[in-house]
Computed example of a mutant assay.
Amino acid sequence: MKSKNEWMQSVYAPATQKFPERKYNFKNLSDMEPEPIYTADDLKDWDAERDLGYPGEYPYTRGVQPSVYRGKLWTMRMFAGFGSAEQTNERFHALLRAGQTGLSTAFDLPTLMGYDSDHPFSKGEVGKCGVAVSSLADMEILFQGIDPTQVTTSMTINSPANAVWAMYIANAQKQGKDLGQVGGTIQNDILKEFIAQKEFIYPPAPSVKLVIDTFEWGPRIVPKWNFISVSGYHIREA
């Protein structure tokens, strides 16, 4: 088998003489220009056990699930939320009946900004682009009839993420559920709000402290939860 350099000289070079490479910036999002091809010759000081490993084990280059998708499929969840907690709860149940395997919650702008629905700043925005959640009572209605230990829930919220997550956990406790079996995700990615979406409430330092608080508390109490979902594409698109 040819080495990479032999292939570059004997095959790639003649091909690019016939069809020259386009005058185009081939750099990736990391501002690095990729090689035309990568082979084992590019692996420097590479150890398969250390750098590749097995599925389900560190460094997770083959995924976090040992059987990948042969056993457990990825969770299928449609982003949903509008109007009142009652209306969105009805939608959640319809989606689950249709075969959805998880929930993804969209909150309205007042909720995302930490305002109650009856605050003057909320006028005209309540229940639009997401569901209005102002209290634990709203959260209880939103997930009524849904077992938080059987259905994982993603919540797309950042500035008040810890407060909304606390409501979700309190609701699970009121249902008598084992918090060790409650799973889901809060976006909780506050830094991208300062750069992209602009839905921040507090200055950067205390905002990040609130995120870190969830990291410190969560694994001890709700170990199956994902405490952040980094939204890099928001920054890229901004």
Rank of each mutant, 00 (worst) to 15 (best):
residue 123 K to D: 02
residue 72 K to M: 12
residue 4 K to S: 10
residue 20 P to R: 08
residue 88 T to E: 01
residue 162 N to T: 14
residue 212 I to D: 10
residue 12 Y to D: 07
residue 52 L to I: 11
residue 78 M to C: 03
residue 229 S to Y: 10
residue 79 F to E: 02
residue 175 Q to D: 09
residue 160 P to V: 10
residue 195 I to A: 14
residue 185 T to R: 12
residue 192 K to L: 02
residue 102 G to Y: 05
residue 77 R to K: 08
residue 36 P to A: 03
residue 113 M to K: 13
residue 31 D to F: 01
residue 13 A to Q: 15
residue 160 P to K: 11
residue 149 T to N: 01
residue 170 A to Q: 12
residue 120 P to G: 00
residue 218 G to M: 08
residue 116 D to W: 02
residue 26 F to I: 08
residue 224 K to D: 03
residue 82 F to L: 09
residue 218 G to D: 03
residue 74 W to L: 13
residue 140 E to W: 05
residue 116 D to S: 15
residue 139 M to E: 05
residue 70 R to I: 00
residue 168 Y to G: 07
residue 130 G to L: 04
residue 128 K to M: 00
residue 22 R to V: 08
residue 20 P to K: 12
residue 232 G to P: 11
residue 123 K to C: 03
residue 19 F to Y: 15
residue 167 M to D: 07
residue 10 S to C: 03
residue 143 F to P: 01
residue 221 I to P: 01
residue 95 L to F: 12
residue 74 W to I: 09
residue 147 D to T: 05
residue 20 P to C: 07
residue 168 Y to S: 13
residue 153 T to V: 15
residue 61 T to G: 00
residue 171 N to R: 15
residue 193 E to S: 03
residue 73 L to C: 07
residue 71 G to I: 00
residue 100 Q to L: 14
residue 233 Y to N: 15
residue 122 S to L: 06
residue 230 V to E: 13
residue 70 R to C: 10
residue 2 K to P: 15
residue 73 L to F: 11
residue 106 A to S: 10
residue 212 I to A: 11
residue 203 P to W: 00
residue 41 D to Q: 10
residue 166 A to L: 13
residue 199 E to I: 09
residue 75 T to Q: 10
residue 77 R to W: 02
residue 102 G to S: 06
residue 190 I to C: 02
residue 210 L to H: 14
residue 141 I to N: 11
residue 203 P to G: 04
residue 121 F to L: 13
residue 223 P to C: 00
residue 116 D to P: 10
residue 145 G to W: 06
residue 83 G to L: 07
residue 48 A to Y: 14
residue 8 M to Y: 15
residue 5 N to Y: 13
residue 14 P to I: 03
residue 58 Y to D: 05
residue 227 F to D: 01
residue 189 D to C: 14
residue 38 Y to C: 01
residue 207 S to P: 04
residue 189 D to M: 08
residue 70 R to G: 01
residue 139 M to R: 08
residue 211 V to L: 05
residue 50 R to I: 04
residue 84 S to Q: 10
residue 220 R to W: 04
residue 227 F to E: 09
residue 46 W to P: 08
residue 236 R to H: 13
residue 116 D to E: 14
residue 43 L to R: 06
residue 170 A to G: 05
residue 123 K to V: 06
residue 63 G to C: 08
residue 74 W to P: 09
residue 214 T to P: 02
residue 54 Y to V: 08
residue 72 K to E: 12
residue 71 G to W: 08
